[in-house]
Simulated assay, not measured.
Amino acid sequence: MLEEVPVQMSVVLGSSQLPIRQVLKMGRGALIQLDCGYDDPTEIYVNDKLIARGKIQVSGDRMSIEVTDVIRRGR
């Protein structure tokens, strides 16, 4: 029954704040510096709620995320 319930999942590597004029000037290949380092945890959201943190893993041309911390919610 639950297998058919749609959810939206987002994986957030980091964030950045840019003026709109800078965003409008960007072209293909533009680089955006994020506010995180290589070893910082990546956040995993489901339906806009933080549910876990993890580390990005790269193997060849494939990327995955290793879940390192599940966020527990009080009832």
Rank of each mutant, 00 (worst) to 15 (best):
Q33I: 15
V12F: 08
Q57L: 11
V67F: 01
R53I: 06
P6G: 06
G27I: 03
L24D: 04
V46T: 02
S10K: 05
I44H: 06
G27Y: 01
K25C: 00
R72I: 04
M9T: 05
V70E: 05
P6H: 04
E43C: 09
T42E: 09
G29K: 11
G29P: 11
M1K: 12
V70I: 12
V70P: 05
S64F: 04
K25G: 01
S64I: 05
G74L: 12
Q8I: 12
D69K: 04
Q22S: 15
E66D: 11
L50Y: 02
D35K: 08
V12N: 06
L18Q: 10
K55I: 14
V11R: 05
E43L: 10
M9C: 14
E4F: 13
A52H: 09
P6A: 11
L34D: 06
S64C: 00
R73S: 14
L31Y: 01
L24S: 01
R73A: 10
D61F: 08
G74N: 15
D40S: 13
A52K: 10
S15D: 00
E43T: 13
A52C: 00
I44Q: 07
Q17R: 15
P19S: 14
K25A: 08
M1W: 12
S59M: 07
I56H: 00
A30Y: 01
Y38K: 09
I44A: 05
V23F: 08
N47Q: 02
I71W: 06
V70W: 14
M26E: 06
R73M: 09
P41W: 15
E3V: 14
C36W: 04
Y38W: 04
V7K: 00
M63Y: 13
D39T: 11
R72S: 09
S15P: 04
M26Q: 07
V46K: 04
R53E: 15
V67E: 13
L34I: 12
V67A: 15
I20K: 02
N47H: 04
G27P: 04
D48Y: 06
G27R: 02
M9N: 12
R21G: 13
G37C: 03
E4C: 11
G29E: 13
I56F: 01
Q8V: 02
Y45S: 07
M63D: 00
G14S: 11
C36N: 03
I51F: 01
L31N: 09
G37W: 05
M26G: 01
Q33M: 07
R62S: 13
G60N: 02
R53D: 05
S10W: 10
M1R: 01
I65P: 02
V7M: 00
L2E: 09
M26W: 03
V58G: 11
L31H: 13
Y45Q: 03
V5E: 08
K49S: 10
E3W: 10
G37R: 03
E66P: 00
G29F: 13
V12T: 07
M63R: 07
G14D: 08
V11D: 07
L18S: 09
V7G: 00
N47F: 06
